[in-house]
Simulated assay, not measured.
Amino acid sequence: MSTIKTKATEQDVATFIENFAPTERRKEDAFFLKDFMERTTGFPAVLWGESMIGFGSYHYKSERSRQEGDWPLVGFSPRKAAMSLYVYSGCAGQENLLKDLGKFKMGKSCIYVNKISDIDLCVLENLIQSTVSFLKSKYPETS
């Protein structure tokens, strides 16, 4: 059975942000997002792998392969090129929310923003809440 390599770690999230965020602006945005996502999800920030900060977790089994593992409900990474937000699940209503989010680029399931002030925080909060609700209903043993 195949398992994913990115796993929750015991590393200190604040230390990670201080050392990983490439600029002062990215650091400020990362600390803001950490607090914002903790309040929005009710879960503490946990470093996953080498560069993702996640909130909550769920266990999944892929329908297309034998891969399974644990993954954060939502998260972000303060990368050099952009802040990567892992808050999109494609569940009902999220396409409409994206229209009002603000300035961003979309990857496969990742939202890239240059700075947090480019996006509407109320919309981000709704995206986070809808993703968490969707994943909790799809994976009932969510923590």
Rank of each mutant, 00 (worst) to 15 (best):
M1A: 11
M1E: 05
I4C: 12
K7W: 03
K7R: 12
K7D: 04
A8F: 02
Q11W: 07
D12A: 13
D12H: 13
V13W: 05
T15W: 01
F16K: 13
I17R: 02
N19R: 00
F20S: 09
P22S: 12
T23E: 03
T23R: 11
T23K: 07
R25T: 14
R25V: 13
K27A: 10
K27V: 05
E28D: 09
F31N: 01
F32I: 02
F32D: 06
F32H: 02
L33H: 07
D35F: 02
D35P: 04
F36M: 14
M37T: 07
M37E: 09
E38F: 08
E38Q: 15
E38I: 05
E38V: 13
E38L: 12
T40A: 15
P44M: 01
L47E: 03
L47S: 03
W48V: 09
W48E: 10
W48G: 13
G49W: 03
G49E: 06
G49Q: 08
M52H: 10
G54I: 03
G54P: 02
F55A: 05
S57C: 04
H59R: 11
R64W: 07
S65P: 07
S65V: 05
S65G: 05
Q67K: 14
E68T: 14
E68L: 10
E68C: 15
W71L: 02
P72V: 00
V74Q: 08
V74E: 06
G75M: 11
G75N: 02
G75I: 11
S77D: 10
A81T: 15
A82N: 10
M83D: 09
M83R: 00
S84P: 02
S84I: 04
Y86N: 07
Y86C: 11
V87S: 05
V87N: 07
Y88V: 01
S89G: 10
A92H: 14
G93L: 06
E95S: 13
E95C: 09
E95T: 13
L97F: 01
L98E: 00
L98A: 03
L98H: 01
K99R: 09
L101Y: 06
G102W: 06
K103C: 06
K103N: 09
K105C: 01
M106R: 03
M106Y: 00
S109K: 00
S109Y: 00
Y112S: 11
N114I: 05
K115Q: 13
I116C: 10
D118K: 11
I119V: 15
I119R: 03
D120S: 10
D120H: 10
C122G: 14
C122N: 12
L124K: 08
E125C: 03
N126E: 15
L127V: 08
I128V: 14
Q129I: 11
T131M: 03
T131W: 00
V132R: 06
S133V: 12
F134V: 12
K136A: 03
S137V: 13
S137K: 15
Y139K: 07
P140I: 12
